[in-house]
Nucleic acid binder design. Structure first.
Lengths: 182, 182
DNA sequence: ACCTGAACACCGTTCAAGT
DNA sequence: ACCTGAACACCGTTCAAGT
């Protein structure tokens, strides 16, 4: 990669992170290009689709997922609390940007999605939590991590689109948790 | 309303129903106007926002909601089956058009939404089902119909956006049901 | 090899001119 | 009172011309 290319690439990612934080994942890419001081063609050369750009932004985000799972597993107390703690971390992680919950959750069912690798990270982190619960004998028979991702992702999507506050979301997560535990 | 105005109004609603069925609720309004043979201004005169048009389309849909609740309540068997039956009817009703689950579920939290009256119909139908369960002593303490709408709406939204088939959705609804019942 | 920016297509929205 | 369609703004996407 040429020096000016790398400079542009980095600048676009940096600006996109800022714009997406302000306006969500559906913000105008034209605006991103303008603010980054590059032509629209340059943006498209580096990131053929919006998802490719989102994927680049999420690079630094991967570490936080594992930390969140660690934190949940370090939790003292009954399995229900541990699961709920993970749920809240999970919702927070995919709700960092408006439109995130919908985008990430539907990417889980799309093998061709550019952000698929990020979804895998989420799944393996989720599996660590579920495995612990299984070992405790606290989890229902036949529960898959994909199902949990869809359920919690669904709650997060509704919360995101309806601008619900955490206090409103909490009881919804409790229902899901109770439905998953023995 | 003048005769030609009414003719245009009806024609737009009819065409919109068709276009939305083909392409979902996010289809181009320009296309609707073109197919209806009216100028874009005419469409905007009758329906200032997309939601106003969706609301008009949903007019005939209201009856089906009450029928669905009737059917669920006529169900024999344990409360869990009854609730799941209602859930499946609910998901089917709001998933008639692509984009419907997200639109309807988030309209529940928006007092200014033009389709709010339709949401109320859904809520009262849901309350009939919940009241029956409460009378049987089968429902958890403190469960609100709004929460149920969000949970099932969330599952429907994920299913809609990920093109999941009913067989995949069913276990998710079971988790929600189990979390809601005593 | 990479960038630029004009150009095109598409859509939503408004409004002056018409009947 | 209502309709029409041109006009504008905005956005995504492509590509010929430039370095």
């Amino acid at each position: 990669m040429r020096a000016d290319a790398k400079r542009n690439y980095d600048r676009i990612v940096e600006v996109a992170r800022e714009v997406f934080r302000e306006q969500g994942y559906d913000a105008s890419l034209d605006l991103v290009a303008k603010r980054a001081g590059v032509g629209p063609g340059t943006l498209y050369r580096h990131f053929p689709t919006r998802e490719n750009l989102i994927d680049a932004i999420m690079q630094s985000w991967v570490d936080r997922v594992d930390e969140a799972a660690d934190k949940a597993l370090a939790q003292e107390g009954p399995p229900r609390d541990l699961l709920l703690h993970w749920f809240e971390e999970y919702v927070a992680l995919i709700s960092l940007h408006k439109g995130g919950p919908a985008k990430i959750t539907s990417a889980m069912d799309d093998p061709a999605s550019p952000i698929r690798t990020k979804c895998e990270v989420l799944k393996t982190a989720g599996d660590r939590v579920l495995d612990w619960l299984r070992a405790e004998g606290a989890l229902r028979e036949g529960v898959e991590v994909t199902q949990v991702a869809r359920l919690v992702g669904g709650v997060a999507t509704v919360a995101d689109q309806g601008d619900l506050d955490p206090a409103t979301v909490r009881p919804l997560l409790e229902v899901v948790a109770d439905g998953l535990l023995v």
